[in-house]
Design a protein around this nucleic acid. Structure first.
Lengths: 349, 349
DNA sequence: CTGAAAGCGCTTACAG
DNA sequence: CTGAAAGCGCTTACAG
């Protein structure tokens, strides 16, 4: 009499139907809230569902209906607070819309990305939100994913016809550079990132634009590449000062790089915000509590995550609309790392 | 002739079978790598799979086999770097074992947790990794999840027969307190957290133990409760100093609280690591870059995530073994916030 | 308003 | 070594 069951005795619609002398079809209609079924019947079924502790098997329903209630989210790694916030925003909006988030991490490796996507696709996601790993090959990804599953690209554009949610990298870097120009700097470096990444190229473009508008051209030694990690950035700090004229400030590819640069400066007896100005990009939580706090370009990754979810949901509603290209706003968040108290007067125009 | 298909023209086993004049059964055997099928047949099938760009529908296979390849991960929120790292570790190990992570966030609300779990369970996860929201009701969760799906509890114990992965809270707080005692402090506060959370109680126990071993008893005003957020902690800072004897050091419930306390101290003209010693708990990434860097109890959340995944996988292998209770190691990470250069000599025994 | 039947895409004994 | 048939848990026309 008790509805307790052995480990594999799942309660199914058939059990419920039997339990109240109806057909599976009718029980299914109750489940899906159909107005067809008699009010009294509905009550009877609902009681039986409760009594037997029924749990809906969405996978079976999805199979039959040829729909899916999952959306895959493929990002670099949750250890990166930028992506963690982004993922939180995605999950929040997807959950609100009744979808479940299928998580995948690439570790910034195109190979792992291929494997992870291959595995996720077998779970038949309704859509995919993908922040491509560095070095991703658009054509290869396109061949893997096929045309059946819509993809929203975030952050890095690829040569595909997929929807794309971009950060306004160019404008962000322009704002950062203009901020330093306003504070009197004339020798401003662009520090970190790799030229083959599109986001890095765009940020460099914004930086150049702002300099050009002020009648300035960057010296080659002000353009330092390095992997976008704190450690690499700290190690490359010296490269800023090997040749004259050395910069008095740097726009960094992102906050991780900026924090690394600040550590590198400290190690060389300099202080960010005191005798060298530093601006980051992303506004990760650490930017608020670093020493000194980091002036940076805020992109609100959590809001970007919500936006990405809305875009893919929109695409599910209208699969045949033309591909979209959305540019998310950014804003400058000024903190102490861009103070310039001790830049020698001679360096200020 | 081309394998291109309309939006809902999924290529199925039937298509492949037709394509090479075999039965679905044989194609299925090829897919699952059965040694039964003739080598030449296998080659033919594999070519056809490639030609038609077949993608396996794991959901259909799982339905038929009565298995599941998903594991649900339910945590507070990815904005919290502790949980983000934990989730990264979980996902890493689950992916390596061929499972996909189904993400759910509770936002530390028992109500949302109920809703999220209810939705995830419908996706038929093989297991659930749950870091319970504060105020979770074990019996209610047990009723919701039932006995079919194994659950691994992380961080917060509930009154259930589920597996449990604990941090060694008591030992961590003891290490933190002993560290301050060794540096000469005698008036040590325990700051932040709520008494009704089990992790907070355990950390307080460790703190008391260490004090007791040194022949000390905490004054009531050294035990300050507050929500485990930076903002709340900053706001409660004053409470430490309303009555004499005021503490010269604090063991904090976690790093967020410790960072908030440091901000609160600064706002009151004090400096952590200078005239007041602060120790945190968790070692979140921000602890390294705060000003001053935060001495804290490191729990390596990413390793904990991997461990949680291994534990639930173990449980899937052996569903009938007795519930396990695993205690993860912790260690003290000493940084500058627990320096005590200017604590008045009178305060040091 | 309710039921019988077919079918989603796969797997698995069971024959042959 | 390969195929015919049944079935996983659900939904959806179609009758009645």
């Amino acid at each position: 009499m008790t509805p307790t069951r052995a480990r594999h005795g799942r309660v199914t619609l058939t059990d419920i139907a039997k339990g109240c002398g109806l057909s599976r079809a009718t029980v299914s209609l109750v489940l899906r809230g159909s107005p067809l079924v008699h009010a009294e019947t509905r009550v009877r079924v609902e009681a039986e569902l409760k009594r037997q502790n029924y749990v809906y098997h969405r996978g079976a329903a999805n199979l039959r209906r040829k729909v899916s209630s999952g959306v895959a989210l493929v990002i670099n790694d949750l250890s990166n607070p930028f992506f963690a916030e982004f993922a939180a925003g995605v999950d929040e909006s997807l959950a609100a819309a009744g979808y479940v988030t299928l998580l995948g991490s690439t570790g910034e490796s195109a190979e792992r990305q291929h494997a992870v996507l291959g595995s996720l696709i077998e779970h038949d996601p309704a859509g995919i939100i993908l922040s491509p790993a560095e070095g991703s090959d658009g054509a290869r990804l396109r061949a893997l994913v096929g045309t059946r599953t819509p993809v929203l690209l975030f952050n890095r554009e690829l040569d595909t016809d997929w929807d794309f949610l971009a950060l306004d990298n160019r404008r962000g870097a322009r704002l950062a550079t203009e901020h330093l120009l306003e504070r009197g700097h004339r020798r401003i470096a662009f520090f970190g990132g790799h030229r083959d990444s599109s986001s890095c190229r765009e940020r460099r473009d914004g930086y150049r634009e702002a300099l050009a508008a002020a009648g300035l051209t960057p010296e080659p030694q002000w353009l330092i590449e390095c992997a976008p990690t704190r450690l690499e950035a700290a190690g490359q700090t010296g490269a800023l000062f090997v040749r004259d004229p050395a910069p008095t400030a740097a726009v960094c590819y992102n906050d991780a790089v900026a924090l690394g640069l600040m550590a590198g400066l400290t190690a060389r007896g300099r202080r960010a915000g005191h005798d060298f100005a530093v601006v980051g990009f992303d506004d990760i939580p650490e930017a608020q509590v670093s020493a000194p706090p980091l002036t940076t370009v805020a992109v609100d990754p959590r809001a970007r995550g919500r936006q990405a979810a809305e875009l893919i949901l929109q695409r599910l509603r209208d699969p045949d609309a033309a591909p979209t290209r959305t540019i998310a706003p950014v804003r400058l968040q000024v903190r102490a790392s861009s103070d310039i108290a001790s830049v020698p007067p001679g360096d200020i125009a």
